[in-house]
Amino acid sequence: MFKMHLYKGGIYRHDEFIEAIEDLGGIVMQKTPMQTEVDIVFAIPEYDMDYLKKIIKKLKGELIDIPFGDMEIAIVAPSLSRHHLPHPVCDMSEFLRRYGSTTNIVGLARGYGKTIFQISDKEKRIVSEHDAAIFSFGMFEECILLKEKELKGLTLPYVLCGGPGKIENVSNYVGNLGRKSGRMRGPEEIKTLEEVKNLLLEMVDDVREEIGKDPLIFPPVYVKRAIEQQWDLSGSLGDNPVVLHLDGLRIKKPFDEYHERISKTKVGEYELGKISTLKKSNMNDTIILTLKTKSEVGEGP
């Protein structure tokens, strides 16, 4: 399975590093030269990390893991008012982006209050399009428990955040993250954010393991590159028109106009439409692409 990393090093001889990635069957996602330094974001299968580390040592570079690099994470706030935004939702969002994730903040329409909390079916579908979710709830245990019940039926891994330090019987809960009136900059608060990250990482590793048992026909990074090479997607929402998911991609282009073109992309010896399912997203009229597994296409056992 492909994992994402960041290389930081000098611009001198960085081409050797790029060649090594290409030789090892990896993909250079982004190269940012800055005067004498260069940042290279790349995805690579995990077979030869030791060999790559040797090259990095030779080039006096630095290797940084981006554990969420191939994920889109939803951060759900009960509303978009000052009670729930910007702190700590934006802090979490910003923190996870440091680890490579694409984060979307979702504000629920009627997510506030204890008795009137609602998460609609459409909202659930929007959240479920992501690889993982974080729900930022309030500061009272009783309320959090009531809201948690409403989340039944979500199939993606999610973390609950709230004020109380601990809640019994809720394993995916991180405390001390209730309402904040300022940015989370103190050492204690950063530790809490780390906790969220680690919990999420654990959950996502399980998902990765599950995908590994019945692997996808092609890694999403490869399909992403094929699409970007074969179609002009400029002028999309945001500067990253194709977002990686664990099991596919989100393509930020209108579904009706683009889905036929996208499904004609040539990936390896296949046409993309035959090895994936394209679906209209509930969010901003984008395309959700789910890759089929090897067993489904008929390549695997």
């Binding site: 509303s79 008012s81 000052r82 729930h84 506030y112 209050g113 204890k114 009137i116 309030g138």
Partner: peptide
């Protein structure tokens, strides 16, 4: 209003 929970 910004201290009390929203939506009451």
């Amino acid at each position: 209003w910004s201290i009390l929970p929203e939506g009451f």
